[in-house]
Design a protein around this nucleic acid. Structure first.
Length: 568
RNA sequence: CGGGGCAUGGCGCAGUCUGGUAGCGCAUCUGCUUUGGGAGCAGAGGGUCGGCGGUUCGAAUCCGUCUGCCCCGACCA
């Protein structure tokens, strides 16, 4: 592609709409244009990247034996009513009516449609297993779209759905997808981790997420420094307490803490560490409010809390009126001493002694509180987020925390949809059996953003070879003055193109620095500079996007160098 | 949804308080000079100042209203 024929606009200044680096660079490099909140046009250079991602995903899905189909983006309400999700899904689902007042939605996912296909197409166990997939546009009406294509409302997803006769079958289909996903992310050239995930509302038993590692990631991942354990922090278990609390050294006292409503303020006022305090959170329960008690420096884990018997799901903090009724005080001074509602203590509180708690009275806290004396020794539960340094479930190491961007998710669904929608086949005994399903998603558009989050520097994007819109950039110096440079650049362009490279020839009449800056912003991995200076010796200047220095090489050596770095 | 902010040429912004000919930088176009790290000079094009309504002799500016966009939002008990 000649630059002069590729209508590409780059920006020197950062559009103010963009907050994170991938969004900024995608706008500056001209990959995307925003149309409305959470809606983006993929410009020609962006589409080149998108197609690379799709091609790899498609190849590996096909290799794994999955069958590509394409379902409608718009789906009839009846199917969603049949699965029960028309009412469950909430405002995330974009609903619409046609001219006959029939209701539809723009698909946020396709379990209903595929299950409908499966119940019509699949009759016999002999047809199983089947894994259908598509690469297609979804719409989810996010509360707050942000981070460019990373959390947009419309996005492209590869979604796959497997159908098996029994649980052994699902496990096998799931494992095939796991292997395919590992190959996909390896081929994409991204650093990633597979983590144990919450299967959440979708149900089913087993679920893993694929995260691209990046400091700006929205998700926290806990992983072991000694084995291959990795988990979404939402799901990472904390250990049961070991040992006994130290013997009380202080008497319980009630002290004045006017206006002190936060743990930080409390710790500062009393000159204690936050891990010597307890925080007591009042949340809605199934039958009136319940209290959750954590060490002051720990964070509540909502996913864990809402799974407890008696705690409302989804988790909801009690309103101030309820807090007042339950504790006799406004929020900020709740504590477990003398509290008449159910109380859950986190594991980490079990070994504490001489700690500080709210006194259930405005502007008062208790100090020197101890289990066994001021409070009954608790049965503790797992309520908190893990933190760096916690022991791992395998016991072999300690947890580290990394940030990640979720780009893939695989589930064993079981029969949730097939049961609700009657997707059955006949087994070898001629009996009807409800099929077992799995579902497997990859965020195609999100991968592009995640790749940039992981691979960039102050000058721009640094594409992994597998994703780059162009492999090589040819930068001629003074091409419009020097026929020798022009001819050399054109012949190099033809030769590389014939060799199968995707080449961007910067044939603009611009100064070198301008071209270099664009080249780096666009993140093209290989750059060849053609100049009179080097042509005399039949030389080219080669520089990889990650290099800090250029190398002047004989033309054939430069080509060899390119070939040597070829991956496919 | 709650809170905050913004809306002026393709992008980034000033002008609004204190009403009086719509401006700057980047980008674009033309010409000349320039050509190894986002060039210089000279000129040019491009804006119903988000929409509607009001106040006024006069509104980007004041008032009302609507719309759009951005940011923050369990961890406080």
């Amino acid at each position: 592609m000649r630059h002069s024929e590729f209508a590409l606009n780059t920006l020197k200044e950062v559009p103010s709409e963009a907050e994170i680096v991938s969004h900024q660079l995608m706008l500056r490099a001209g990959l995307i244009k925003r149309l409305a909140s959470g809606l983006f046009t993929w410009m020609p250079i962006g589409v080149r990247v998108l197609r690379k991602v799709e091609a790899i995903v498609r190849e590996e899905m096909n290799r794994a034996g999955a069958l590509e189909l394409l379902m409608p983006a718009v789906q009839p309400a009846e199917l969603w009513q049949e699965s029960g999700r028309w009412d469950q899904y909430g405002p995330l689902l974009l609903r619409m009516s046609d001219r006959h007042e029939r209701e539809f939605c723009f698909g946020p996912t396709h379990e209903e449609v595929i299950t409908d296909i499966a119940r019509k197409e699949l009759r016999s166990y002999k047809q199983l297993p089947v894994n259908y997939y598509q690469i297609q546009t979804k719409f989810r009406d996010e509360i707050r779209p942000r981070f460019g294509v990373m959390r947009s409302r419309e996005f492209i997803m590869k979604d796959a759905y497997s159908f098996d006769l029994d649980e052994d079958g699902v496990i096998s289909s799931y494992e095939k997808m796991y292997d395919a996903y590992v190959r996909i992310f390896e081929r994409l050239g991204l650093k990633f981790r597979v983590v144990i995930a919450d299967s959440g509302e979708i149900g089913g038993n087993r679920s893993q997420e694929f995260h691209v590692l990046a400091d700006s990631g929205e998700d926290a991942i806990a992983y072991c420094d000694a084995d291959d354990y990795a988990s979404n922090v939402e799901m990472a278990a904390t250990p049961e307490p070991e040992g006994e609390p130290a013997a009380p050294a202080q008497e319980m006292q009630t002290i004045d803490t006017p206006g002190v409503k936060t743990i930080e303020a409390l710790a500062e006022l009393l000159g204690v560490r936050s891990d010597q305090t307890l925080k007591t959170l009042i949340v809605d329960g199934d039958d009136g409010p319940v209290a959750l008690v954590l060490r002051g420096d720990h964070e509540l884990n909502a996913v864990k809390a809402q799974k407890l018997d008696g705690v409302a799901s989804p988790l909801n903090m009690a309103d101030p009126g309820t807090v007042f009724k339950a504790t006799g005080s406004e929020p900020g001074f709740a504590g477990p001493v003398g509290l008449a509602i159910p109380v859950f203590f986190d594991h980490a509180t079990a070994t504490m002694s001489d700690f500080v708690v709210g006194a259930n009275e405005k502007d008062k806290h208790h100090t020197g509180v101890n289990f066994g004396r001021d409070l009954p020794a608790p049965d503790t539960v797992d309520l908190r987020n893990v933190v760096e340094g916690d022991p791992t479930p395998g016991g072999g190491g300690t947890l580290q925390i990394a940030r990640g961007i979720e780009v893939g998710h695989i589930f064993q669904l079981g029969d949730k949809y097939s049961q609700a929608m009657g997707a059955k086949v006949l087994d070898a005994d001629g009996k009807e059996r409800v099929m077992q399903m799995g579902c497997y998603g990859i965020g195609i558009t999100r991968i592009v953003g995640a790749a940039i989050e992981q691979n960039h520097d102050e000058n721009g994007i640094i594409w992994p070879d597998a994703l780059t819109p162009f492999d090589v950039s040819i930068v001629p110096i003074n091409m419009h003055k020097s026929d020798a440079v022009r001819e050399a650049a054109e012949s190099l362009y033809r030769e590389l193109t014939n060799m199968g490279y995707e080449v961007l020839l910067d044939d603009r009449d611009a100064r070198p620095g301008f071209k270099f800056a664009d080249c780096e912003l666009l993140g093209i991995p290989h750059r060849l500079v053609v100049s009179d200076r080097n042509l005399k010796n039949d030389e080219l200047e080669y520089r990889h996007r990650r290099d800090s220095e250029s190398a002047t090489l004989k033309r054939e050596d430069a080509l060899k160098k390119l070939n040597g770095s070829r991956i496919s």
